[in-house]
Amino acid sequence: MRTFTSGLVLFLAAGALATAHHGLAEFDQTKAVTLTGTVTAFHFVNPHTVVEFEVKDDQGHVQTWQAEMTTPARLKGWTATSLEPGNVVTVTGYRAKSGAAFLWVTTLRSSNGVELKPPK
């Protein structure tokens, strides 16, 4: 279990946001998106854990997505190897309003058995 502290924690506290240092304003919370793809990287870091995964569309084009989750300390039982390159993940979340390939994760299920319903 890890908690990012020192300078940033003051910033986090000042932000006073339940999800960590930013809210969900960047994401379209009116519509959930579900994607399935292959993990290329997992960043188990503060202030947000992030899964990078590749999604192949109907035409075979590959697009890299980033799925943003809560802090490591709130992912009880998770480690830096909970998701590894090659794992197949199905991710549901809210897409970035900007249109960038970013999701805020609401649920995640991985082929290695890891499952997540992150707290908001």
Binding site: R2, T3, F4, T5, S6, G7, L8, P72
Partner: peptide, 15 residues
């Protein structure tokens, strides 16, 4: 030392 630090091995309640 004013390091950015990941807390490890702490009681969850104290965290």
């Amino acid at each position: 030392e004013r390091r950015v630090h990941d807390e490890t091995g702490l009681n969850a309640t104290v965290l």
